[in-house]
Design a protein around this nucleic acid. Structure first.
Lengths: 236, 236
DNA sequence: GTCTATATCACGATAGAC
DNA sequence: GTCTATCGTGATATAGAC
């Protein structure tokens, strides 16, 4: 392990510094592609535009990624990993269900607020039927399975809370769908969402506020009775 | 007003029947395009594919829509209108805020569940930065303003409920973002969402269940104290 | 209104020099 | 590892006959 204070020295000997990126071409391509794919999706982005913004010729991209699909895949994988890294420890740590849920929501929102592209790419990864070539599509499916382990953990946490009586009886799947929608949609909602809350979505204050509002709604919504009167079902 | 039983007679005199569609070419194009755009987005769909599925030559499309952008716009407008039609009367009708909110959620979910394409297109319309030509982009912005009137009404309803004490103190914008995320994301979430709730998203039972689960969470979440203990903020 | 061309352009990807 | 040049394809859109 390398002590943080020694990194500059070490990197002077071993290579470029890690955190403040001069950034390899590969990383630069990924960054540019991430921003573009988030805005316009897989089909909406041309490699020419990527190359231009990176400052390379189009052909040079193919030395780093064999195809457009592979580039897209690499972008999505990086996003999934960032999310997993942030959220997993927060709900794997112990404590009563309310606290673990509370912490997990914080972590998930932090993960989505870290880069303005994250929520949009996650959303695209989840609901978009891109026609990727078979191999890339399979790799993506596998990456989503990693996310599903995260989902499985969250579902377990909710089930546990319900069984222990900490939460009222509810469908863990529906609750989780609501949570995901509430946070992923929110940070993907761009100008529309900013009009709704009257502030930039990614400002520090707005992020903290979002955490509080979501947790209030969720934890109150999951708390045991008294239940308000509800019309059930309604017109199909 | 025309009695339903007389429609066949009337339409035999006046034109094709209204409900059971032999469908004009224009409507057929819109239907096909809606399905495709919902799945793969604006850039991901080629007019060739649309024409094939409609059963026309590619060029014939341009007699009904001047450009691809105009076709996309027409699809989105139809979707927005369908939503507006369904939801507006439900919250404009009177009653106490809880009831109006209850009915509005039912109506919104009914609108999204009506066609499997609706939620995805709405989502795309809200967050996607398609590069449409300026004129189409402006028209879309105007259409979104119509939706914003709906949003404004919902915000007013929430504010009213909060001021009257029916709901606890909360940010109407954040609550509405949560509601929209909870329902629009849900019905756009495809296979991922189906894995989450363990059923087809659009089956009658699943739709009814979604209504109940969302309303439980929302109305309980908005009910007045007692409040569970909450960690506020968390790491930024 | 639908068709058969066709124009024009951008795309993803490859070849091969440096 | 980056470049120039190019291939082949499919895109949107137009022209004009029927």
């Amino acid at each position: 392990m390398i002590a943080p204070e020694d990194q500059d020295v070490v990197s002077a000997l071993e290579g470029p510094p890690r955190a403040p990126l001069p950034a390899s071409s590969r990383d630069k391509i990924l960054d540019v592609a991430e921003a573009l794919f988030a805005r316009r999706g897989y089909a909406g982005v041309g490699l020419r535009e990527v190359a231009e913004q990176v400052g390379l010729g189009k052909s040079s991209l193919f030395h780093h990624f064999r195809s457009k699909a592979e580039l897209y895949l690499a972008v999505l994988l990086r996003v999934f990993e960032r999310i997993d890294e942030r959220v997993r420890p927060s709900f794997e740590a112990g404590g009563p269900p309310e606290e673990r849920l509370d912490r997990s929501v914080d972590a998930l929102i932090d993960a989505l607020a870290e880069h303005p592209t994250t929520a949009r790419l996650l959303l695209r990864g989840l609901f978009e039927d891109d026609d990727l070539p078979d191999r890339a599509s399979a790799a993506l499916a596998e990456a989503e399975r990693a996310l599903e382990k995260l989902v499985g953990g969250m579902l377990g946490l909710l089930r546990e809370g319900i069984e222990s009586g900490a939460f009222r009886s509810a469908s863990p799947g529906h609750v989780l769908q609501t949570l995901v929608g509430a946070v992923v949609y929110h940070f993907a909602s761009g100008e529309f969402g900013e009009g709704m809350i009257g502030a930039p979505l990614f400002s520090q204050g707005a992020v903290r506020r979002r955490k509080d509002e979501v947790k209030q709604l969720l934890l109150r919504g999951l708390s045991a009775p008294p239940a308000p009167a509800l019309r059930t079902g309604g017109p199909s």
